[in-house]
């Protein structure tokens, strides 16, 4: 097995092939890597395997062939719980990753569930609420706020674990231009902290504006643009 860890590489994808059924290969021999602090975009038409690729790099799905390394370690050997501390994953429908009755509890969930002290959690939550401009929504239900706000809450809740990498699946779906701009601003504000970002999207404007690097998927194969 190849042991890879150049100083800046965070995710290493090595000759990965994936199919749900034997007959249909979704991804074929994909090899690429993602660095800390880079803003990459994964584009391609519906059904090109973008979401699948994102899930492989988060360990939600396992490759049929080839492997994915996170910080040099094979992702198969890391539990989802531990990956979550390194990589934040935003689902296409953020409602699927919200579990708590209020925004405040939602953001603090990862820590309060693991039994961290109330004061520490609250301090952190307050800081994150400010960072993600969620002031005024602390006691609102994550299900009764707008789509853009819900997405920010989902991101904020991931951030309590201080991940070093983010994978966002179609984050601009359902966002109007003003909310998209807010998302751009938010993501840009994270970059100086050295956080790497992969955006899976078919929103050309958003990608042209934000991404340093574009990988296109079609027919299960990658094309670096």
């Amino acid at each position: 097995m190849k042991e890879v860890c150049s100083s800046n590489t965070f995710i290493e994808v090595n000759n990965v092939t994936f199919s749900y059924k034997k007959s249909e290969i979704i991804l074929k021999n994909i090899t690429t890597s993602f660095d800390k602090g880079e803003f990459a975009a994964l584009i391609g038409p519906n059904g090109s395997g973008k979401t699948t690729f994102g899930k492989l790099m988060t360990g939600i799905l396992s490759a049929n062939e080839g492997s994915v390394f996170v910080e040099g370690k094979n992702i198969e050997e890391i539990s989802l719980g531990n990956i979550g501390k390194k990589i934040g994953y935003l689902f296409q429908q953020p409602a699927r990753q919200l579990f708590n009755p209020t925004v405040k509890e939602e953001i603090g969930f990862a820590h309060s569930f693991m039994g961290k002290s109330k004061e520490i959690v609250e301090q952190k939550v307050n800081k994150i609420i400010e960072e993600f401009s969620l002031q005024g929504l602390e006691d609102a239900s994550p299900y009764r706020i707008s789509r853009g706000e819900r997405q920010r809450v989902a991101l904020a809740s991931i951030f309590i674990n201080e991940p070093s990498f983010l994978i966002l699946d179609e984050p601009t779906t359902g966002l109007d231009i003003v909310r998209k701009e807010q998302l751009s601003q938010l993501l840009k504000s994270l970059q100086p902290q050295g956080i790497g970002i992969i955006v899976i999207s078919h929103d050309k404007d958003f990608i042209n504006k934000n991404a340093d690097r574009v990988i296109e998927l079609y027919g299960g194969e990658q094309h670096e643009a």
Binding site: P45, N46, T173, G174, H202, K204
Partner: peptide, 8 residues
């Protein structure tokens, strides 16, 4: 068209 790709 919100959830549809360019071609669609």
């Amino acid at each position: 068209m919100a959830q549809i790709d360019q071609k669609g």
